[in-house]
Design a protein around this nucleic acid. Structure first.
Lengths: 209, 209
DNA sequence: GACATATTTAATAGCTCTATTAAATAACGC
DNA sequence: GCGTTATTTAATAGAGCTATTAAATATGTC
């Protein structure tokens, strides 16, 4: 409803800022532009959020939590490891599809301002440890049983994240280099989710060389 | 004692600009900062390159050619497809290791300024078509022979690029989230090259589900 | 040395940006 | 309505940025 957008300026500023920061990053987004797009005076942005930095931090934190949550959901169901893993990969892929600009946004802000990394570490707390450990235990049990070749949890996680994010990050460049149409790219995207599951599951088998 | 003052200023400016653009991107790098780092007057940057835009374009083009060349080298040797593919993956990985900031740099500049994409397309010309087609033909021959499951060349390429670049792009974030040490990260990086080859080669086999 | 040319600098115009201040307007309790 | 508080605006200080201009300095040529 338009009541929300019209009435609550604070919220409208937050939403527009989120959109712009995700599109252009912290540095290239000005409070002037945010205000222009919202349709309010530039000083109002500072009235509600004091500084551009604080406004950004509020948004950054929210997005961090969304992203991390997508990969690290503890799954207590008693199903085979590979099935569980397949689910994790798919839910991660879906989360990125929902917010395709998030990965590049993180990489940029993290690399352009190291204080964001500290912020990230502080906000996350014990979460990653806890959930990585659960996955790690399950993985090591499978390795012990001989179902899966020896590998670290970090290798597995990195492979999953790599495969899942790049199709979204690289979309404009990939389209330009390959000259494939938007339609073809959509088809490719649709295949990726299944592809990625397949690639990861196959990679768990013992090395054949 | 800066080499800069003694030697070719034009070259010194180009090198410093390259370093800064790669680190911080076009928008966040100022000609003022370039000059400060080189140790010359800010107007000198404009004397040699007229505008910040032209200076950037010279650098961008050079880096594009390096990056594309690393993945798309035609290999005429008559060795098995999988062996050839393994070599390609490894040489691509090595190229990125040599210039680890390049992938993020491209994604950023391409997404923050679409005119860069046009520039990229113009500079590349027929190169991608030619080399993708050669790889595509070899892949399709293998599929026909039944050695490899049906898949498109774009899926294969995307999987390779995905696996190879993310360990470099995500280094700061990954270290922060996992809290692994620099030493451990180095070990992880060393494993990745072999891992990625293994993952790709295994993924060529028919789907087991 | 003197002249022409190339390199380098200081100064500045004209932007845009963030953040603040004081004043205007809206909203609300009574 | 009136006083109080919350919201919104106009104006601006102060900084940094790109690009240009004219002047100073260095370099090479004869």
């Amino acid at each position: 409803m338009s009541i929300n957008t019209e009435q609550n300026m604070e919220q409208a500023i937050l939403e527009t800022a989120t959109k712009l920061f995700l599109e252009k990053g912290f540095r290239s987004t000005s409070t002037t532009e945010i205000a222009r797009e919202v349709g309010c005076n530039q000083a109002l942005v500072h009235y509600y959020y004091r500084t551009k930095e604080r406004l950004f931090e509020a948004i950054f934190e929210k997005k961090i939590k969304f992203f991390i949550g997508s990969l690290f959901k503890i799954d207590h169901e008693d199903i085979p490891f590979e099935k569980k893993l397949a689910r994790k990969i798919e839910s991660h892929f879906d989360a990125i599809k929902e917010e395709p600009k998030l990965p590049l946004f993180f990489f940029n802000e993290a690399s352009s301002n190291p204080s964001r990394l500290q912020q990230l570490r502080d906000k996350l707390g014990e979460l990653p440890d806890l959930v990585v450990n659960q996955m790690k235990n399950e993985l090591e049990a499978e390795i012990k049983k001989g179902n899966i070749r020896p590998m670290t949890i970090y290798d597995l996680l990195m492979s999953i994240v790599s495969l899942n994010i790049v199709a979204f990050i690289a979309e404009p460049i990939f389209k330009t280099i390959t000259k494939i149409s938007d339609e073809e790219y959509l088809k490719l995207l649709k295949r990726r989710k299944k592809e990625n599951v397949h690639i990861i599951l196959n990679s768990l088998k013992p090395r054949f060389t």
